[in-house]
Nucleic acid binder design. Structure first.
Lengths: 236, 236
DNA sequence: ACAAAAGTGTTGTTCCTACACCCATGA
DNA sequence: TCATGGGTGTAGGAACAACACTTTTGT
């Protein structure tokens, strides 16, 4: 009974740092561990990789099993393999990060009755295993990547206003941006498609925009480089 | 005899894409496989991860065992885990890339008598396993990273001329750069330390420069962002 | 003197920053 | 009519792209 190999092998898991944008807060979804080790501690959702699935699929599967979230952007972050990172023995974990739109993907109470909650990125509790380091790297990666790849849109609804988009950058990067300059820059890129206006707001309704991925890829071919940020702190 | 686990586990390896700059060519070091599968085919150096070493150390160890190279810059690239990527069974590989200075780190004939050779990045032969995909991603990563992180220096001697540095960017990025503008930009960053002049060249000797890592980190604290490139093709 | 590469001056243009101002809607 | 956020004009300055030119070495 069991599986025998000539040489010892580490166990292989995937863990996922799930980012969501909630009003003006960037948040991470954590799960309360139901079992030892670290029972009762907050941790990243994750689990063991099956033998017949690839890593990407494993991350998506664990994400759905533990949070009900599916059809979201995920990307490999880093592989963590310090010998002592799991008290049960050698466990190597391939970490992913996910970007979800909180409005369109409400988190379900976990299917295995574990407790799940969103925490603002700068108020994370002490996490199980080395998940602090994983979350930390994910935040840095997101901050670094959001300025030169158009992945921020994944945190917003399909259609969004320019102010929402600006708030996204301000929140993720932790800076204030000048409205005039932000708009000029993002619109000049010509990767946003203008849609209808907002409705039912107590002020002048804003235009909604959609990220035009086709146009973006077309521009990429011609040597276009997406780049937003490098903004100066302005307006307090 | 052997190691038994309750659930099956993939084997875990590290593979390494080693870049070297040779005159005006960016090259990758490959090893000819001595054993099946893919016996006689070219492949990336790599091997199994030991149970008591972390992934970074495993990559460094394999690098030294197979090429004699040590004390070089390496960084995790990506983890490849498609179920069918190795005909012997499920093998997950954590890929690293390394930057070496060919002058200061000559490659030794491999300790296990395997054949090793440098190949220009755009003339790579068909590789074993999914190593084509790994090498491909490494090249893209290097091209992407070299413009916003000062890692290119790892490919040069400790002391280098500005022309060498410019050639590095031209080679890696595959563009031509205007000499005047390149110099103005890189010197204004204030991360290079001027040293003595070159000697014994049949023309006006150039100043040598050294990358000042301390200064760079100091500037980082103040919000400095390294960025070179975004150059226009110029001068043919 | 010449070849070869190092190194500098400068100009027109584009892009960035900061600030001020007007506009449309619901309450 | 007011509050609220949407949206635009523009001036001054910094950074960029392109080109031409001078300097210093070995042969």
């Amino acid at each position: 009974m069991g599986y025998t190999y000539e040489y010892p092998r580490p166990a292989l898991t995937v863990d996922c740092v799930i980012f969501g944008l909630d009003g003006r807060d960037l948040k991470v979804l954590l799960i309360e561990r139901a079992l030892e080790p670290f029972k009762g501690k907050w941790a990243l959702p994750g689990g063991f990789v099956n033998m017949e699935e690839n890593l990407y699929d494993a991350a998506l599967r664990e994400l759905e099993e533990e949070t009900g979230v599916k059809d979201v952007f995920i990307e490999q972050l880093f592989t963590f393999g310090e010998p002592g990172r799991d008290p049960r023995g050698r466990v190597v974990s391939v970490a992913y990060y996910a970007l979800v739109n909180l409005k369109e993907h409400p988190i379900q109470a976990s299917s295995d009755a574990r407790n799940a909650a969103w925490f603002p990125v700068d108020e994370l509790p002490k996490l199980a295993f080395d998940h602090d380091a994983i979350a930390d790297m994910a935040i840095k990666r997101l901050r670094g990547k959001v300025v030169y790849q158009p992945i921020g849109f994944e945190l917003l609804p399909k259609k969004f206003t320019l102010t929402q988009l600006q708030n996204l950058y301000e929140t993720v990067l932790g800076v204030r941006v000048n409205k005039r300059n932000f708009r000029t820059k993002i619109l000049k890129m010509d990767i946003l498609e203008q849609c209808e206006r907002q409705q039912g707001v107590a002020h002048r309704p804003a235009f909604l925009y959609r990220f035009n991925e086709g146009k973006y890829k077309e521009l990429l071919e011609k040597g276009f480089v997406f780049e937003i940020g490098g903004f100066v702190k302005n307006e307090q």
